[in-house]
Design a protein around this nucleic acid. Sequence first.
DNA 1: GACCAGGCCGCTA
DNA 2: TAGCGGCATGGT
Length: 282
Amino acid sequence: MHLSACQPFKLDLGWLQGQAFRWTKREGWFYGIVEGNLIKVRQAEGGIEFHSNASEESLKPLVISYFRLDQDITPTHKALRKAGLGDLVDKYGGTRILRQDPWECLIAYACSRNNNVERITAIVDALATRYGECQTLDGVTCHSFPSAKCLAEVGKEELERLGFGLNRAELISKLAQDVAARELPLDDLTHCSHEEARCRLMKYPGIGQKIAACVCLFSLHMDDAFPVDTHIGNGLKRRFGKEYTPVAKNARLLAWARDKFGAHAGYAGQLLFLEGRHSKGG
DNA sequence: GACCAGGCCGCTA
DNA sequence: TAGCGGCATGGT
């Protein structure tokens, strides 16, 4: 099925994996899970083409939302050019901030501390392969991400065995229990203020400013969230002379970003991230 | 063994 | 509030 997208829009593994980790590319198609369904997508004239074994008609609104095909990106680009990121808009303007499933997003970024993208992908994928639902599309196999209820029953020892490490296993086990019991009603956080969502997430030891911001940005529809990692910090320093501390707790930095990029801070960060990873050869 | 990955936390001033 | 150091966890 063909879906048109507000332009510019360009699928690329760089920004897909930079946000959602588990997308793969085979023979020109990108394979990934959207709302529990394995789909394949590729760039098409004026938008994308996607296919699934599930009803494409019923998946259509989900796919549009996931890739934000209906988002008019022009105001964002205009704001970022004004803020001095015009070259990045030229380079990475086809990027979108995805609307991921909050549960998988939370777990993936909860693994991001002391870790790299490849390893995060590997352990999240190991979890899905072991406990998710196996799906096949045109010979490509992919597993949906296991539910919170499922992971709550798995237990932290098993998570540790899967390669999460002791601390991450404990954190993820706790998150699974609370999400399953709706102590942490993830879907409801979409309707909270950015501040409240952030605080709810940061109550968990192991989830700080950066990870909470990633979850807010990539799955809770909060485009003004501004996660600062090493790449983004380096980019800020290079371009704007901003001091960056690894804790990213620098309230002044966040205030500066809010002032500079406003509602588009998330996009600014994402383009800086892509530049940072790209320049490192990734 | 050093250094690096999309950090977090607690202590101190 | 910010600055600093300790800790984390495999891989190269």
